[in-house]
Design a protein around this nucleic acid. Structure first.
Ligand SMILES: [Mn+2]
Length: 644
DNA sequence: CCGTGCACTATAT
DNA sequence: TAGTGCACGG
């Protein structure tokens, strides 16, 4: 949406420019715009689920265009969606699904061009598509950042802290987020339109006494993504209103109180509150700071606003533990799942809202292609993951290069024990092949959708991340309920230590978490993590089975920031299920002391950011003494071992 | 006349 | 996302 009518309003200050005018500058790019356009070219393939990366080349052409004129591009990707926008997201999703249906109908009729048109209308940019582009960017050593939430705020922040000189987008919202130089309407020749916020005073309707806050309020009043406008209020009335108003609060109060006697827009219930929230969202949405390597607010909250900011995660995005935030930013973690990217994730988040939607809940739509399942199942052991509630009935299909088979999952009792899972008839995995490795509260459980998702109704956590070891790898395609099997650990040659699952459900925090990563070729890396937010110990993952991770110790947070931390409660014991825990997994179900022989000396951090210029980061120190005897009493030794 | 609100369109090769 | 054109109401 953006702010409709804002760009025409700013017409007087728009300047026609060319990319060469920005030679030597760094420009942040709202990459979604490019991806969306690029996807048009291969909409058919995307809609049919064929593998294409045609959209990557369009984007890379644009990258080349910027570089041709001496510009250093920094591509910024959208991250997870803010819960408050999920309504909008769902509407779009439903539209796309309708368009897709029509497209298939047209295809059956034989009207290819009509089908194309419909496919174009349902193009959706998935995190994995973004990842394809990211891979290309890495090869070309182009800088990029994946925003934790909206790219808009991230773009504005990069300009604010001086990482870039201008922002390239098609979205008028960028101005409301406080961008100074916004570049719009780039064409293939390099022509652009610049709108510079310092020219605002030259806009007729912002002549006298306008502050940026006033501008932002006018935009919100006219209707924005976070708050639809009052009936009859558009861009003109919004700006007129602020021109003759001492403060928006007063004006709104007047409208509400005397609305019946004077001609004024009819106020909706809760409009004032919603207005304030919209304001706070434009001001303080969470973004990633590439230097601090953690989430920060777009602007430093002023004291009077802090009062309003409790419990505003819906609008600002919830805080993420630094290493998760970093993982997202550098393209290692999917911003929706907070886990390493995996092809299945696209279906996963497509299904997120379907879960809330009665209509789709009972009419599962999708035949989901499932990744390769090797013929010889014993050949490749994979870790599987189960999320479950009641009623598991569904069909999933697996495809391998030479055969296609269908599998049926069996109805599940509302209350079940994990090791009673049976994955069906012809499916070659029996319950004996599944070994429960660990279960943890879902990182997305706190987004409310999965709150009720649990194996036992009495459990107050979800088994989204219940980890099973199996000899194959499968996905519950309909995923209407519940059981969903996705690989936790996609094998990749690169070694990364990734952390995920920071949930609001965690009742504890750590100040220091020391981790050692050890690979088969004998490399060891230690890293100390000072995490201000919640940390779930059992949530460390590694991408390679051959990498051992030792969580050396952790110290509970002592000082408590009411906005970020909650008072310490002892960590919950692992879920009580009848499941069998793997022997290699002892460290997860209960904390136990690490022995001296398991301690290693720090050899260097492995932090890297795609964003340059890099700042040399002081190597984190791991004082050995802290690990040995005489450690502080609040230091809890932990050993966790992942791997085969 | 002006402004709003809606339906409809384009975005790539 | 944006732009267009058109009907409506003040
Ligand atoms: Mn926007």
């Amino acid at each position: 949406m953006g702010i409709s009518g804002l760009l025409p309003l700013l017409e007087p200050i728009k300047k026609n420019k060319h990319l060469r005018d920005y030679a030597g500058m760094r420009v942040a790019v709202d990459t979604y715009v490019w991806l969306h356009r690029a996807a048009f070219g291969c909409a058919m393939d995307l809609g049919l689920g064929k593998k294409t990366t045609a959209y990557v080349s369009f984007c890379m052409k644009r990258v080349a265009l910027l570089r041709q004129f001496g510009i250093t591009p920094v591509l910024v990707f959208d991250g997870g969606c803010l819960p408050m926008k999920s309504h909008t997201e769902r509407e779009r999703r439903l539209r796309r699904q309708e368009a897709k249906k029509k497209a298939h109908e047209e295809l059956l009729k034989g009207d290819t061009s009509k089908a194309m048109e419909m496919f174009q209308q349902c193009v959706n940019i998935t995190p994995n598509m973004a990842l394809e582009l990211i891979k290309a960017l890495r090869k070309e050593k182009i800088e990029f950042i994946v925003a934790p939430y909206e790219a808009d705020a991230q773009l504005a922040y990069l300009e604010k802290i001086g990482k870039v000189d201008a922002v390239l987008t098609e979205d008028s919202d960028l101005l409301v987020f406080g961008c100074q130089r916004v570049l719009l309407k780039l064409d293939a020749n390099g022509s652009v339109v610049e709108i510079n916020a310092r020219d605002f005073p030259h806009v007729p309707c912002m002549k006298r006494g306008w502050t940026f806050a006033k501008f932002r309020q006018a935009c919100i009043l006219s209707g924005c993504d976070y708050l639809p406008s009052l009936k009859g209020v558009g861009i003109k009335k919004a700006f007129d209103t602020l021109n003759s108003s001492s403060s928006i609060e007063r004006t709104l109060k007047t409208w509400r109180t005397f609305g019946f006697s004077i001609k004024a827009p009819k106020m909706r219930d809760g409009y004032e509150t919603a207005f304030k929230e919209a304001e706070l969202t434009f001001l303080y949405q969470r973004v990633y700071d590439p230097d601090k390597k953690r989430l920060v607010h777009l602007n430093e909250p002023i004291l009077s606003d802090l009062d309003f900011m409790e419990d505003l995660c819906k609008f600002l995005g919830r805080d993420l533990e630094p290493s998760v935030a970093e993982g997202i930013a550098i393209g290692e973690l999917n911003p929706y799942t907070l886990r390493p990217y995996h092809p299945d994730d696209d279906f996963f988040y497509e299904d997120l809202d379907a879960k809330d939607d009665e209509a789709t809940r009972h009419h599962p739509i999708k035949p989901t292609p499932v990744p390769h399942v090797p013929k010889d199942l014993s050949a490749s052991a994979r870790i599987l993951q189960v999320s479950t509630t009641a009623n598991l009935t569904g069909q999933y299909t697996t495809k391998s290069s030479d055969s296609t088979s269908k599998f049926f999952s069996q109805p599940e009792k509302p209350t079940i024990d994990v090791d009673e899972h049976v994955y069906s008839s012809s499916f070659p995995i029996t319950k004996n092949d599944l070994e429960l490795k660990a279960a943890e509260p879902s990182p997305i459980a706190s987004l409310s959708r999965f709150r009720s998702t649990s194996i036992n109704p009495s459990d107050d956590f979800s088994y989204h991340s219940t980890v099973l070891k199996s000899k194959a790898h499968a996905v519950d395609s309909n995923n209407v309920s519940p059981v969903r099997l996705t690989p936790v650990i996609p094998p990749r040659p690169a070694m990364h230590l990734l952390k995920r699952s920071v949930t609001e459900m965690d009742s504890f925090s750590y100040e220091h978490v020391q981790i050692r990563k050890e690979t088969t070729d004998g490399n060891k890396t230690d890293r100390e993590n000072s995490s201000p937010a919640n940390v779930a110990v059992e949530s460390w993952v590694t991408e390679e089975a051959s990498v051992k991770i030792h969580l050396e110790s952790a110290r509970y947070m002592e000082q408590t920031n009411p906005h970020q931390h909650r008072p310490y409660k002892p960590p919950a014991v692992m879920p009580k299920t009848k499941a069998v825990f793997g022997s290699a997994f002892n460290g997860l179900s209960t904390f136990r002391s690490s022995s001296a022989s398991e301690q290693h000396v720090y050899q260097g951090g492995d932090n890297s950011s795609s964003l340059k210029p890099k700042k040399a980061r002081p190597a984190p120190s791991l004082p050995k003494k802290r690990l040995g005897a005489g450690r502080p009493t609040n230091l809890i030794p932990i050993t966790a071992f992942f791997g085969k």
